[in-house]
Structure formats: structure tokens, C-alpha cells
Design a protein around this nucleic acid. Structure first.
Length: 210
DNA sequence: ATACCGATTGGCT
DNA sequence: GCCAATCGGTATC
């Protein structure tokens, strides 16, 4: 497989927990910017209290139940757009949250969007990453597995350089606890050891079941 | 119709 | 380390 070959839909049509770690080191390109992915988190449906889809399908979470290979972009805390890559089979809620990356192309674009912050902070955290890529509401439902259309706005996830297993780190997801704190028990956060672009860990807040 | 909350970030102590 | 900002989604009445 050549380095820039697009990952096929079959790659994503598996449980998000399998897909997420294998995305480390891969390239995500959109609108003239390319990131080397350094941090991802897996989210699932019914069994995962930390998932938006835990309580079933809603208009917002519908993409998570759909076919793999499409984006699910959500808005949070009144400010931030976070990018997910939908995984799994149709009818199952599964997605991979893209939490951080290293900019490998499109430096000028990202610099203009992120302002005077250190380069390692350009896409360090899901909100910053969304800003670096200029992705928002309009970018939900993009098909990143279809044949390339040749448009510069096309979203591509390509092979890049998969990370050695010894360099993959695993731990609890950031800011997630879910009802009773159960969301934190899943070690579904994956990152590249020693990468400065990986976001800081913050524990989730325990919530009561409603 | 209304109230509550968040898969975060940046600024201040 | 702590906390306000800010608003769409979701649940509840």
C-alpha cells in the first residue's frame, strides 16, 4: 500500500475500539491541510455511557448509527466543533473522535486560523483540531471513503505511517464519565507515546443517572 | 415552552 | 489548579 492511499470503507466498518488505535500515524486531509493523527478515542452505542448515542438515536446522533466512512461533527460548550469518523456496521452506533494531530501540510492555513500559539498546540485537542481544519456543522455527513472527486475540499484519510505497537499508549477517555462514572472505565483513548501534540488528560465529572 | 448540561478551551490565581 | 464562556441538543413539563 502506498503511503498516500486512501483507507477503504472496510477499514472503518469494524468496532470503533479496533479502528481507533490503527488510525494513529495515519493522515487526515481536508481543504489543503494534512494532519498526522496522534490521538483518538473510540465511542460506541448502547454499552457506552460516555457516548452521545447511549440513550438511543436522536437527530444529532443519527450519523453514528449510519454506515462507516462518514463524518459526525458535533458542537459543544457553545464554542467547539469536534470531528468524528463513523465506524462499525449500519445500525450500530460507533465513531472515533479525532482528538489531536501534527500538521504536516497546510502550515500557512493553520497558522492563520489558530493565531499566535505554539505549533504543537495547533491541533492539540478536539476543539482546536476542528478549528485547524475549519470543520463545522457543514462538514457533518462527508463521505471520506468514496473515490476522490479531485476537489480540494475533499476529505481524505490515507495510510500514512502506522505507529509501532510499542509506541501506542492506551488509557481512559478525556472528560468522560457518564452516569455513575461508568464511562471512565473503558480504556478507549489511544495516543502516540511522546507526541507533543497529544492533549492533556482531564478526568470526567461524575454525573447522576437521570 | 423551559431548564439543564456538555467527548472544551483559554485565562487567571 | 480553578472557573467562566456560550449555545445547540435533549429531556422534561
Amino acid at each position: 500500500m502506498s503511503v498516500d492511499e486512501r483507507l477503504p470503507r472496510e477499514f472503518f466498518a469494524r468496532p470503533s475500539v479496533e479502528v481507533a488505535p490503527e488510525l494513529l500515524g495515519r493522515h487526515l486531509s481536508y481543504g489543503g491541510v494534512t494532519l498526522r493523527l496522534t490521538e483518538l478515542e473510540a465511542y460506541a452505542g448502547e454499552i457506552d455511557p460516555g457516548s452521545h448515542a447511549f440513550r438511543g438515536m436522536t437527530p444529532r446522533t443519527q450519523p453514528m448509527f449510519g454506515p462507516a466512512g462518514f463524518t459526525y461533527v458535533y458542537f459543544t460548550y457553545g464554542h467547539h466543533w469536534c470531528v468524528n469518523l463513523v465506524a462499525g456496521e449500519v445500525g450500530t452506533a460507533a465513531a472515533v473522535l479525532v482528538r489531536a494531530g501534527e500538521v504536516v501540510a497546510g502550515h500557512d492555513l493553520v497558522r492563520s486560523r489558530r493565531g499566535p500559539v505554539r505549533e504543537r498546540d495547533w491541533a492539540r485537542g478536539p476543539g482546536r483540531l476542528g478549528q485547524a481544519l475549519a470543520m463545522g456543522r457543514e462538514q457533518t455527513g462527508l463521505d471520506f471513503c468514496r473515490p476522490p472527486l479531485g476537489e480540494p475540499i475533499d476529505l481524505v484519510v490515507s495510510a500514512g505511517e502506522p505507529v509501532e505497537a510499542a509506541d501506542v499508549r492506551v488509557g481512559p477517555r478525556v472528560g468522560v464519565s457518564g452516569p455513575g462514572g461508568d464511562g471512565a472505565r473503558y480504556p478507549w483513548r489511544f495516543w502516540v507515546d511522546g507526541e507533543p501534540s497529544v492533549s492533556a488528560y482531564r478526568p470526567g465529572v461524575v454525573r447522576k443517572r437521570r
